[in-house]
Amino acid sequence: MGRNIAALLAGLVFGLGLTISEMVNPAKVLAFLDLFGNWDPSLAFVMGGALIVTAIGYRLAWTRPKPVFAERFQVPGNRQIDTKLALGAVLFGVGWGLVGLCPGPAISALTFGGAPVLVFLAAMGAGMAAYELFDRMTPRPKAA
């Protein structure tokens, strides 16, 4: 119960942050990526504000033995930089640059973004499903 309310609250706060910072507006995101045009550095300030709070908040959270509503902190331990990571980031970056939407803002804009957002979300879901298929068909190397 607590875990689900916490997730709903975290989603609401995240969506409010995207709304206030105007990151739900693809035109504003593209204006950040448009270094050589009429550059709008706002997105860097969004990242900066988020990073300061998260860097401090995570460290405070981790001083406790476990999360309030869960048994352990689930933090990725993988430190290997591999082709999947790099290729995935580049493909994502190209898609982001084409439209100005990444997953958070695309989902958050569902109620007011009209048909373009619905189509983008459908394509994004198809891309994610394609990855799941690809991942299940790829033989996994045994863990060393």
Partner: peptide
């Protein structure tokens, strides 16, 4: 829009 959505979906999961 469709190309962007596909790339964002596949790329974020791959990466």
């Amino acid at each position: 829009i469709i190309a962007g959505g596909l790339l964002v979906g596949f790329g974020t999961r791959l990466g």
